[in-house]
Design a protein around this nucleic acid. Structure first.
Lengths: 191, 191
DNA sequence: TCCATTAATTGACCATGGTCAATTTCATGG
DNA sequence: CCATGAAATTGACCATGGTCAATTAATGGA
């Protein structure tokens, strides 16, 4: 019952390769669907037969990067302190901030995104919650709330820090500094 | 030196009135610039002479609503507990969630938005931080961090709760319930 | 090997936000 | 009251994402 897969897979691969080339040379923001299909040597309609819309392609490009960072985070031992936690999150933050468009896409499609359907980015954000929760269970932080809730909070503060990074009103301190402050207050309250 | 203001003001007012009518009858998402200018009886170019882009109009429509909620929050006495805080935030949450498009616009343009310029929504979010900070200085919550940081955190959790509301993966509990949990963990840690 | 059925592809076409050179309106000084 | 220059307005036009009926390619059965 599985028909005509080779052709389909090849086309999809061509589209993705073309898109990746364009992103590499001109960045995400400047990517045009028309350019992608030209490079891939297919018609425009074909693109939309493979990707629901342009954002779906963006998700297909960005989500794997995030998964890659999570893979690396999973390798690490549980963090001993706030610093090691910040260090672990650094690659994610740097990537998300490296181009404004990237953060926009992540924002649009993360749980922090108004999407009913669960796409690649929502999935990877969800996975981040799990990875962090597992990790936090073994970390020397506050124990009055569940690791899942701790992870949720880290996610919230992560988005806040990233968002403020792009906001002219608030960019006196670096993302990492800001994140450090948030994490201290969240993970190690001194009441 | 102030020339031809009446005409300009009138045109802008016509555009806003037209837009408000359309929003009232069909919602934000369905608003089309072409429809707005038709109703207002002006040319399309005029619209863009008054608003940088469609989102600028959206900001002009949505920011005042948020300011209105903040005005009401400012009236209230400082919250005695998490419940009264949640109650104060309720109108904002309900509005932000009443249409997905509204939340999208707020997300795009809040500090939680990748915008360099400070627009009406970024301003109102900033004001929310101030209002909450003033309020929290008098509230019976943790005192180990500044009111401004407390307010920042509330903002972060507010966006998180709103975002999860729209996310299929996570919508088992209501926004308010979720917010309650977040605020407890943030404002009254039990370490 | 040929036919029928289904899947994949095509590209002309549409929807909509946004631009800009040309035109009209207005305020003001002479 | 007219001329002049600045400000506001116009609408044809463009850019780009997205649609869909028609066409082509592939698959499996007889």
């Amino acid at each position: 019952m599985v028909k005509t897969q080779t052709r389909t897979l090849k086309t999809r691969a061509k589209l993705l390769e073309s898109a990746r080339n364009i992103v590499t040379s001109t960045g995400y923001e400047a990517l045009r669907v028309e350019h992608v299909v030209q490079q891939a040597g297919v018609a425009k309609g074909t693109f939309f037969a493979h990707f629901k819309d342009k954002d779906a392609l963006m998700e297909a490009l960005i989500a794997p990067e995030l998964h890659h960072f999570l893979d690396e985070i999973e390798q690490r031992p549980a963090p001993k302190d706030i610093e090691s936690l910040t260090a672990a999150l650094r690659p994610v933050m740097q990537f998300a901030v490296s181009e404004r468009y990237i953060f926009d896409v992540i924002l649009r499609h993360s749980g922090a995104a108004a999407k009913a359907e669960i796409g690649p980015i929502a999935s990877v954000i969800f996975r981040m919650g799990e990875v962090l929760a597992n990790w936090l269970a073994k970390a020397p932080f506050r124990k009055d709330i569940s690791p899942a809730l701790l992870a949720d909070g880290i996610g919230a503060f992560l988005f806040q820090a990233l968002a403020l990074h792009f906001c002219a009103l608030n960019n006196t301190q670096s993302i990492e500094d800001r994140m450090q402050v948030y994490l201290h207050a969240w993970l190690l309250p001194q009441v």
